[in-house]
Design a binder for these strands. Structure first.
Length: 107
DNA sequence: ATCGTGACGAACG
DNA sequence: CCGTTCGCCACGA
């Protein structure tokens, strides 16, 4: 079952992010071959939380290029995301920013 | 095919 | 440093 849609490709990448690591939308887009499709990536992840896939995809490991969680849409989602990441061992500094030098993926 | 929209990002002022 | 603007891409109506 080959997934051709951009969505499915995004999901495939996100699933490959190891625990304790994070990446950003732009990076995923770059891996998919479209460096400027960061917005589309976010759009794809947005569809996850609505479906059952959210239980299989570590969407919480995807943050924005600043290393911060995007508090857009549901504030509840952002709060949950931060909790999950901390639980995985990721540290947020005083400005709620993740250090990509340490937790960035791919390395 | 066109329009509006969105968990983005880089450039500006 | 901060807020705003523009550009990007994919998707659904």
């Amino acid at each position: 079952m080959k997934e051709h849609s951009f969505y499915d490709q995004v999901y495939s990448i996100v699933k490959q992010i190891p625990k304790g690591k994070v990446t950003n939308y732009g990076t995923i887009a770059l891996i998919l071959g479209s460096p400027r499709a960061a917005r589309a990536v976010g759009y794809a992840l947005n569809a996850i939380k609505k479906g059952d896939l959210k239980n299989e995809i570590p969407w919480q490991r995807v943050v924005n290029a600043k290393g911060q969680i995007t508090f857009k849409g549901d504030l509840f989602r952002a709060n949950l995301q931060k909790s999950l990441l901390i639980k995985e061992g990721i540290i947020f500094d005083s400005t709620d920013t993740i250090d990509f030098q340490k937790y960035g993926w791919p390395s």
